[in-house]
Design a binder for these strands. Structure first.
Lengths: 173, 173
DNA sequence: TGCAAAAGTGAGTAATCGCTTACAAAAATA
DNA sequence: TATTTTTGTAAGCGATTACTCACTTTTGCA
């Protein structure tokens, strides 16, 4: 990966995440990256290819958050790690996570499939702990995670800690 | 309101909700409404005015959902009505609610302030019921509601009922 | 009925869109 | 070093964008 390629991805991520996909033109990206516009199309074929490259490049960030949960065997730890998941997100990665939400609604590109292993791990954990509806419990908890992530990325300052502590107590953790 | 004005609002709502704001051109709206493009600007000044008119026109739908909760005095009923809120949404209004979410992420126009009275009612209800952290409890529940709404509008078929039943049980309702 | 205001049209605007192409510089390979 | 390949640029492409304007039709009211 060339230095200019990195600049492009970096500028595009920031602009897509802040202004949105359609509101960000390729010329804007080029200008922000200090690069000729044609170079974007040389490396990424088209605008869609650019955003896909960003998503692929960020895949590792997704996995690093999830793998810790999926690998955990202790069911209580699975719940605890899931609930506190958003606190593990590096603020320098906020743009990337914001982009995930934006794309979900603007382009209806959903990263929900990436959450599937987490959901399975959760359902399994709830089952082990004797919950009556492990599948629904897992769905509900994931809804919460998405919600707290959303408010973390949109809100000005969000004391997610208070809510997270509350939820931990509700699940006896 | 003229017949053609209604057609414009109706077409714009459907397109904005399905394709997104920036992905929908004014000429598309005009074509879908069976109207000359100039008419849009006569009535709504510009594209932003158009989407604002849609939001204003839909305000009643927002209020009708919330007023039932805010007016309720029995704290348990406040919780029950909040949790089952999304089941009261008319499927013909899905486009409008979808637009709310889309605008939140695409234009960062958030309708969260509209939820504030509900949050207050919830906090009050939790307080009456002896919960230790009424404010956080209210926040948490609203996160769940938004999550359920989100999955209701994005998912293909969503058995929200199961999750709603589960939530009702968790709050002893 | 007359007439002004409102509703509606369609052709037009400059600007910007995503993208291509012809070409030059740099890097890699031989 | 010679040559191929990759990286990068600048100009410009047709199409589309949000929006305007001169104009006609319809409507409401004295």
């Amino acid at each position: 990966m060339t230095e200019k390629q990195e600049k492009i991805l970096q500028a595009a991520l920031q602009l897509f995440a802040c202004e949105g996909y359609h509101a960000t033109s390729t010329s804007k990206v080029a200008k922000a990256a200090g690069v000729s516009e044609g170079l974007i199309f040389r490396h990424y074929k088209n605008k869609e290819g650019l955003v896909m490259a960003i998503l692929e490049e960020g895949e590792s960030r997704l996995k690093s958050l999830f793998v810790d949960i999926v690998m955990e065997t202790d069911p209580k730890e699975v719940l605890r790690k899931t609930i506190t998941m958003t606190t593990k997100i590096d603020p320098s990665d906020y743009d990337f996570w914001k982009l995930q939400f934006k794309l979900k609604w603007e382009l209806e590109i959903s990263g929900d499939k990436k959450m599937e292993p987490v959901k399975m791990a959760l359902a399994n954990a709830f089952h082990k702990l004797g919950y009556q509806l492990p599948g629904s419990e897992a769905k509900l908890l994931i809804l919460f995670i998405e919600g707290i992530g959303s408010s973390l990325l949109t809100g000005p300052e969000t004391n997610q800690d208070e809510i997270i502590q509350l939820l931990l107590k509700k699940y006896d953790l």
